[in-house]
Design a protein around this nucleic acid. Structure first.
Length: 285
DNA sequence: CGTTTTTGACCCGCGC
DNA sequence: GCGCGGGTCAAAAACG
């Protein structure tokens, strides 16, 4: 592959989604976000941490689209090459654990620098482990980030959140808000910030996995209720790439790998445009 | 009155 | 060691 980041081979490189046809795609520029598409990674057999999307976000998508303005889209897969990044192979291990992982390939790192990110996985039996750094004490939860084109900062996702902080973001006029899930013993957090490059875009980052169902799901979504948190992939929607006649399926139960890098970079995100109804398969209320 | 938000202070990791 | 920036805490204010 030739699409390795030139500036920093260790650059954070999340995978957001799997596109059903598994075909390589040309680079695109969507809403000013530059995209170099890597190979489509099949996460079919990996467990999901994104029940939230299927259970609640579909209605949100409908709602936002109803006014005739496309306000909602989803991130797509980012750059990824087998040379620079290693995707940990899936195992048939317990679905209650995080199973996807991406490491920085230390051989591509700049000199004198530790690999900066290697978010992974906590499998006892399956030996994936996070390389410990000196002085490191606590392991970060995996994070999942996506971009939404919306005028609303805090989008309804079916869970209840309590805001616990807000910080100004360097070089951005928009603050970043910090939320925690209000459910007892649930440690999931999320951060919300508006892109300073494209103020119409909201970047939401989830950290951790809910250990409970969404309150919304329990009330009104029988289908989702039947689906455990580890449900295999669900069809979320489809997109019509600019240069293709046929839509590509878009699935949502895929892990996004995250780095320890603190500041999100716009090039890490992309937008899916023209999401074609039906948005969901098995996720409808 | 209980819950949520606001906001300044504080802590910590990282780079220089 | 110091400064900077991100993340969290917690008291006060606001809200329903």
């Amino acid at each position: 592959m030739s699409n390795t980041s030139k500036e920093d081979p260790c650059h954070f490189n999340p995978f957001f989604a799997h596109f059903g046809d598994n075909q390589p795609r040309p680079a695109q520029n969507l809403h000013g976000f530059e995209w170099l598409n890597g190979p489509c990674v099949d996460y079919n057999t990996q467990s999901t941490a994104f029940d939230v999307f299927c259970s609640s976000s579909s209605s949100e998508v409908h709602h936002l689209a109803d006014d005739g303005v496309q306000k909602n889209s989803c991130p797509r897969e980012s750059r990824g090459t087998s040379e620079t990044y290693r995707l940990t192979p899936n195992s048939s291990a317990s679905s209650s654990s995080t199973e996807a992982a991406v490491f920085e390939d230390a051989s591509n790192c700049k000199k004198d620098r530790q690999p900066r990110w290697c978010e992974l996985v906590k499998e006892k039996s399956n030996t994936w482990s996070k390389p410990k750094r000196k002085g490191e004490t606590k392991q970060k939860e995996p994070r999942y980030a996506f971009v939404t084109k919306s005028e609303i900062d805090h989008l309804e996702d079916g869970y209840r959140w309590r805001k616990y902080g807000q910080k100004a973001v360097k070089d951005s006029p928009f603050p970043r808000s910090y939320y925690r899930c209000t459910s007892q013993k649930c440690t999931v957090k999320k951060r919300i910030e508006r892109s300073f490059k494209d103020p119409s875009v909201v970047i939401t980052t989830y950290e951790g996995q809910h250990n409970h169902h969404s309150p919304t799901t329990l009330r009104g979504n029988a289908t989702a209720l039947l689906s455990p948190l580890s449900t295999p992939q669900k069809l979320f929607g489809q997109i019509l790439p600019n240069d293709q006649a046929h839509p590509s399926s878009f699935y949502v139960n895929h892990f996004t790998l995250y780095s320890q890098q603190q500041q999100l970079k716009h090039r890490d995100y992309g937008l899916l445009q023209d999401i074609v109804p039906p948005f969901v398969d098995g996720c409808e209320p």
